[in-house]
Write a protein that binds this DNA or RNA. Structure first.
Length: 735
DNA sequence: TCTTCATAGTTTTTT
DNA sequence: ACTATGAAGA
């Protein structure tokens, strides 16, 4: 504990020791950026600073969780719990909740995730009778988000001739109206989208000087991680918050700025010296993570960018092996190459030492398939987070509505799920009435008598039943703890029986997810028996896949997008799909600045590797239902060739010797029982006789899908034909 | 009103 | 290949 400063090198220590005043740490990849941040917090605490006076903003929940744990390990005493540490969104939503009345929101405001926003936009576009070919959902959503990130409100838009002109040219004359309605509807529903959290924070700090002063004096020390990926509003918020004491330390690396599509602005790094002319600059240039070959290759790549801060990243580590670049004939071959290599190497290492990184989520499919064939356990980040799955969102919508009855999106989602005979016509009538009166749908439901809505008596009874159901949920969430009330809601809403009666493979899987949700809530209440459901719900929309890591996933190969890999490191890294049009992405090759961002993304990818790096590309890739020819990425030819070796996977050596041999006799020692992928029996064929625990003996008629989704249609002796998801069915082969 | 079947569009990255 | 949507039938 006393010697913690000795864990740091000279530059790191200098950065940590400066507690007062503005400072910026420009940290090359693998140079101990997180370590500096963590130790700076520790040093502050050691100098008697109260943890409540420290604001530390991170890029992901995971990063903040890990940093808290490291602080706790060294400082102890539960101090890390009192730190204001988290992502921008989580810290500011916490502040917004406690100041909610000042911005005229309920304390329990809902956070709309992007699918909620989409659904709201969709209904607005429909209500306005607009052509959805012209008003494309995704485009509208992105445009609204980028306006918000530039702090342009619907009112601001109205006065912005240039923006209006752009929309007129794109024949979207009604865009301003959509934006206005969207914002109004969110407000009426007591809901904020991701961007609103930042907007309202800024608004709060601007419009209420005493609130601003309160937080300016509360946060005596402010630290910001991944500063290169902050956007305009984040920049403005920080600037306001630190204006009194100017004890601000930002840490970042311009070479790793990869989120400009989301409004991140590298200029924030360059502006720092303008805003705080007396700032101190620290550069961390020694890389501790990677071999010489990897560090030098990364430097040779990033040199191709024009826009960058002078920096010379170096390492004392060994030269290591050269980077392997491999051409494969197809995406499936690429999958095989990677799986084979991992299969060979893991004899000496653990599965968790390997990561496979790709540009787009869609690329995971062929990789998963080949990993599964070799029984290599893997975990996959990205795509849908647990809380985004349909069945989970369905349940959560009841939770949301019970906590905030103004939440129209939640109401629309569950008013007829499970089906209770309230059809689209009725719902449409309710929505129209709500819009006419400018109130949430729930209020219309509660005043049916006073409203001239034409509904027949049968429907009315159904609606009344629904209202009463929700009312019991409301009182339940008030009186009981999170676990008790959530269990009550799941049962009484009818979802429990509805899913339980669904014996299709998908239905079984959904049912299991519900139970996982319940057990998650139970864990939550185990720590605090009196905690309410609304506490549990607070941050759910802000959670991502990475925040849901399970114990049994510890020792598995990691698959993720390069974006998701930021801040992580692995001994062995495979960057796949190094093809023109894929990486760099087709969308970015026409603009210099976007191409440079792709290059930074590649820089991030290769600097994740500690020991060895493998790059691969496929000559033919299956895309949009057809095969596409592609060339190797320009980024490969930009690497200084001293650090790479070209290999050709098409050579017989790889293909015959490794893959086929392994395929013929899969090794059994890697099969663990708790690993779902092993419940898939690789040797099933059509026509086989199998045995099921409950259904008895039967014959396989048909096999569909792959891996987790592999299904068998089986005709059982006693109960007839069933479709089973092999992941759960655990069939035994009789013959 | 609900279910089923056919068709169209989709893939860049995400708090 | 996979999901979301819409039309047609029950």
């Amino acid at each position: 504990m006393n010697n913690y400063l000795e864990d740091l090198n000279k530059d790191q220590r200098k950065a940590v020791l400066q507690l007062e005043g503005p400072s910026m740490v420009i940290a090359g990849a693998g140079s101990g950026k997180t370590r500096v941040l963590t130790y700076k917090i520790i040093h502050l605490l050691n100098n008697g600073i109260n943890p409540q006076h420290i604001l530390a903003l991170t890029f992901t929940n995971k990063a903040s969780k890990e940093m808290k744990e490291r602080v706790e390990r060294i400082v102890g005493g539960g101090k890390s719990k009192s730190l204001w540490m988290g992502t921008f969104h989580s810290v500011f939503s916490r502040i917004l909740r406690s100041e909610s009345e000042k911005i005229h929101f309920p304390y329990n405001f809902t956070i709309y995730d992007s699918s909620d926003s989409k659904s709201l936009l969709k209904s607005i576009i429909k209500e306005l009778n607009l052509d959805k070919e012209i008003y494309k959902l995704g485009v509208i959503q992105n445009r609204i988000s980028s306006l918000k990130n530039n702090f342009i409100t619907p009112e601001g838009y109205k006065n912005h001739a240039e923006l209006i002109n752009t929309d007129l040219k794109a024949k979207r004359s009604e865009f301003g109206r959509i934006y206005f309605m969207y914002q109004q509807r969110c407000f009426r529903s007591g809901a904020m989208d991701f961007d609103d959290i930042l907007i309202y924070t800024y608004k709060l700090l601007t419009e209420s000087p005493e609130t601003l002063f309160k937080y300016q004096t509360l946060f005596k020390y402010t630290l910001v991680d991944e500063y290169q990926d902050t956007n305009n509003i984040q920049y403005l918020i920080i600037k306001k918050l630190v204006a009194i004491n100017e004890n601000i330390c930002v840490v970042g690396d311009d070479a790793q700025s990869i989120y400009s599509f989301r409004g991140a602005n590298i200029q924030n790094i360059l502006n720092f010296k303008v805003d705080y002319p007396n700032y101190k600059l620290y550069k961390l240039e020694q890389n501790y993570r990677s071999t010489q070959n990897i560090v030098k290759a990364a430097n040779s790549i990033i040199k191709h960018n024009e826009k960058q801060i002078e920096k010379d990243v170096w390492t004392n580590n060994i030269d290591g092996e050269k980077i392997i670049v491999c051409e494969t004939s197809s995406d499936n071959d690429e999958g095989r190459l990677v799986s084979n290599t991992i299969f060979d190497l893991q004899k000496n290492y653990n599965y968790k030492d390997f990561a496979i990184l790709y540009r787009t989520n869609a690329q995971s499919r062929s990789l998963e398939e080949s990993l599964r064939k070799l029984n290599i356990p893997y975990k996959i980040y990205g795509g849908l987070s647990f809380y985004q799955r349909k069945e989970i969102k369905d349940i959560i919508s009841y939770f949301r509505l019970s906590i905030n009855t103004n939440d129209d999106e939640a109401l629309k989602r569950n008013i007829n799920y499970p089906s209770r005979g309230i059809g689209t016509t009725t719902i449409q009538k309710l929505i129209i009435a709500a819009n006419e009166k400018k109130v949430p749908i729930w209020q219309i439901l509660n005043t049916l008598e006073e409203n001239p809505i034409k509904i027949n008596s049968g429907t009315k009874i159904k609606l009344e039943n629904y209202i009463n159901l929700i009312k019991t949920f409301i009182s339940e969430t008030k009186d009981k703890n999170a676990y008790e009330s959530s269990e009550y809601i799941i049962k009484k809403s009818g979802i429990y029986t509805h899913l339980k009666s669904d014996n299709t493979p998908e239905g079984i899987s959904r049912f299991e997810n519900i139970q996982e949700l319940l057990s998650g809530i139970r864990d939550f209440t185990d720590n605090n028996a009196n905690v309410s459901l609304s506490e549990f719900m607070k941050d759910i929309s802000l959670l991502t896949d990475a925040d849901n890591e399970k114990e049994e996933d510890y020792n598995k190969v990691t698959l993720m997008t390069i974006h998701a890999s930021k801040g992580l490191e692995f001994p062995y890294v495979f960057v796949v799909g190094m093809e023109e049009g894929l990486f760099p992405s087709m969308m970015s090759v026409n603009s210099q600045s976007e191409l440079e961002e792709e290059r930074r993304l590649f820089y991030v990818a290769i600097t994740r590797a500690e020991k060895r790096l493998f790059l691969s590309y496929a000559k033919i890739r299956f895309k949009w239902g057809q095969y596409i020819d592609s060339d190797s990425s320009r980024f490969i030819s930009e690497i200084n060739e001293n650090y790479i070796i070209n290999k050709d996977f098409n050579k017989k050596k790889y293909k015959e010797l490794n893959y086929n041999k392994i395929r013929k006799k899969p090794k059994l020692k890697f099969q663990q029982d708790n690993n779902p992928i092993n419940n898939i029996n690789l040797n099933l064929t059509e026509g086989q006789i199998v045995k099921h625990k409950i259904f008895g003996t039967g014959k396989i008629l048909q096999l569909d899908g792959f891996g987790d989704n592999q299904k068998a249609t089986v005709i059982f002796e006693n109960i007839g034909q069933k479709k089973l998801l092999l992941k759960f069915a655990k069939l035994q082969i009789v013959k």
